[in-house]
Simulated scan of single mutants.
Amino acid sequence: MTSVTPPRPVLDPAAFTALRLEERQDRLLARLDRPAVKNAIDQTMVDELHAVCAHLERTPKILVLAGTPADPQRGTKGVFASGADISQLRERRRDDALAGINSSAFERIASLPMPVIAALDGHALGGGAELAYAADFRLGTPQLRMGNPETGLGIIAAAGAMWRLAELVGEPTAKEILLAGRILTGEDCLRIGLITELVEPAELLPAADALADRIAAQDPLAVRLSKQVFHAPREAHPMIDTLAQGMLFDSDAKFDRMQAFLDRKQAR
């Protein structure tokens, strides 16, 4: 009797209002979609990001995060996210801060099984920048403006920037961004390694897809374990590396891929 693999669950795009979703077999594109307020991150968007994470935790796929593209006909500029929704942020008090509303969502995104790619155009400020910092890869455009102006609003960048940014760009530059409000251009981001590729806006999503294609061509389990081992604390190494390798050495994909490599080599 032949077993039938059940179809993998997919998200219903109609159930989302702050995100626009496009799902494929190996990836999910989630566009921040509140263009009237420059994609300011509100509670609805946070809730929908949690829903996306819950889906990708059950059905691991590459996540591509993007914003609203530029529309030359209407004369509108592209934007990733201008930050947290200030109208909501202003009303929050101590208990709201202690709940870690944005930081919990961004940490969940950073911990997803498969890699996360942030495609950045226009403003990626405050919470928008912190969302991008949580990604594994960041691509940008010359129009990108990234930074954390929170101290100018009487608060700190508490959704990951205080520790992720130093890991990404080093302490001196991180302090210039976090303490002095420096806003980086796309060229700045490329120069300091905060983004890995600088492309024109029309090429941003194709570049993200090309990167996703390269990831998808790898063995999914090897990618998942590589991400987990990479982010493990130093004291977990080399034990965690050895354990992960032990799992992979017995996987069917390891034998199939290595045999295919040998076959190609012999055929030359």
Rank of each mutant, 00 (worst) to 15 (best):
M1C: 07
M1V: 10
S3K: 10
R8H: 05
P9N: 05
V10I: 09
L11S: 04
L11T: 03
P13N: 09
P13E: 12
A15E: 09
F16Q: 03
F16D: 09
T17N: 14
R24C: 07
L29V: 14
A30G: 10
A30M: 07
A30H: 08
L32V: 03
D33I: 02
P35T: 07
A36I: 03
A36P: 01
K38Y: 13
A40Y: 07
D42P: 06
T44L: 12
T44F: 00
V46I: 15
H50Q: 14
C53D: 07
H55T: 03
R58T: 11
R58C: 04
I62N: 07
L63P: 01
V64F: 00
L65T: 07
A66Q: 06
A70S: 12
P72C: 10
Q73H: 14
R74W: 06
G78H: 06
F80Y: 11
G83D: 06
D85P: 00
L89A: 15
R92A: 05
R93G: 10
R94S: 14
D96L: 12
D96C: 00
N102W: 04
E107G: 09
R108W: 06
R108G: 05
H123V: 04
A124K: 00
A134I: 04
Q143T: 15
R145Y: 06
R145W: 08
R145Q: 15
E150H: 09
E150I: 08
E150D: 15
T151C: 02
A159F: 05
M162F: 08
W163D: 13
W163Q: 11
A174Y: 12
A174H: 00
L178A: 07
A180C: 13
G181R: 11
G193P: 03
P201T: 02
A202I: 09
P206V: 06
A210R: 14
L211S: 07
L211E: 01
R214Q: 11
I215D: 00
I215H: 00
A216P: 00
D219H: 11
A222T: 14
R224K: 11
K227Y: 00
H231K: 15
A232G: 03
P233T: 05
D241T: 12
G246P: 11
G246W: 01
F249L: 15
D250Y: 03
D252N: 10
K254S: 10
K254P: 00
D256N: 08
M258C: 05
A260N: 05
F261T: 08
F261N: 05
R264K: 12
A267D: 12
R268E: 13
R268S: 09
